[in-house]
């Protein structure tokens, strides 16, 4: 543990950078998935195309995507934008399906009732569909949050300064403790993000009491109730 105390600044800096690198793709992926998933649900014509597109993107392995993107974006291979774009694509790929299904599960009665009392599509989305789809969207976000944070470290292979650096450098120096500290810090970020997401969910959806802070996969249980 003495290495951690001696190099606390380095670890803290890498951890913060790691968290920052994770946040953007999670956020961007969610926003884009919201638009695409809603579109997929609204126009059945697009549905199979959008969902199939999502699963193809999901299939592309991470390291190859990190190294292909510079050619498409015209960036340098070590540019962190490559990692952000790649991780956004993955977040999107996982979330599109969840979002489409979340909106599909909104009771038709609620949508028709809101239409009957004169909601515009815009208001209906924000006041009816989005809140009712909320719990499933949150569950999808938690999955994406955890896997994005785990994936960021792969970027260290192409020179990104995040916790993955502790893995590559620890391996070169034959220094196990460094790697384990990196894994621990990565878990810590995932835990903090997860807690924040759950708290955000409680704040925005006070009517939904079922999201637990402790377990990450409450959905499987809550769906059991049916």
């Amino acid at each position: 543990m003495s290495w951690l105390f001696d190099n606390f600044d380095l670890v803290a800096e890498l951890t913060l950078n790691h968290a920052a690198l994770s946040f953007t793709p999670i956020f961007l992926g969610f926003v884009i998935a919201l638009v695409l998933g809603w579109t997929a649900n609204r126009w059945l014509l697009f549905r199979s195309w959008i969902i199939a597109g999502g699963s193809i993107l999901y299939t592309i392995p991470s390291l190859p995507l990190f190294v292909i993107l510079p050619y498409i974006l015209g960036t340098r291979i070590t540019d962190e934008r490559n990692i952000i774009v790649a991780l956004t694509i993955y977040a999107l790929a996982i979330l599109i399906r969840t979002v489409a299904e979340a909106f599909a599960a909104v009771p038709t009665d609620a949508i028709e009732a809101s239409r009957a009392i004169g909601y515009s599509s815009w208001n209906r989305f924000w006041h009816v569909e989005f809140p009712l789809a909320g719990p499933v969207l949150l569950a999808g976000l938690r999955v994406v949050s955890a896997s994005t944070i785990a994936l960021v470290s792969v970027g260290a292979i192409i020179g990104s300064a995040n916790l993955g650096y502790l893995f590559t450098n620890g391996k070169q120096r034959d220094f196990l403790e460094m790697i384990l500290i990196g894994i621990g810090a990565s878990f810590l970020i995932a835990l903090v993000f997860d807690i924040l997401l759950v708290l955000l969910g409680r704040l925005l959806m006070p009517w939904n009491k079922r999201t637990s802070l402790i377990t990450n996969g409450r959905r499987i249980l809550s769906s059991k109730g049916a």
Binding site: V143, A146, S147, I149, A150, L151, V152, S153, V154, A156, I157, L163, G164, L166, F167, T168, G170, K171, D174, F175, L176, I179, L180, G182, I183, S186, F187, A190, L191, T215, N216, G217, R218, I220, L221
Partner: peptide, 25 residues
């Protein structure tokens, strides 16, 4: 059941690169 849920949830956050390097050492 609780084990599966907790385990799969936690494993999702495990960085593959770190796992590989740690096991290699």
């Amino acid at each position: 059941r609780q084990f599966v849920i907790g385990f799969t949830g936690a494993m999702r956050a495990l960085p593959t690169l770190g796992l590989l390097m740690a096991l290699f050492l």
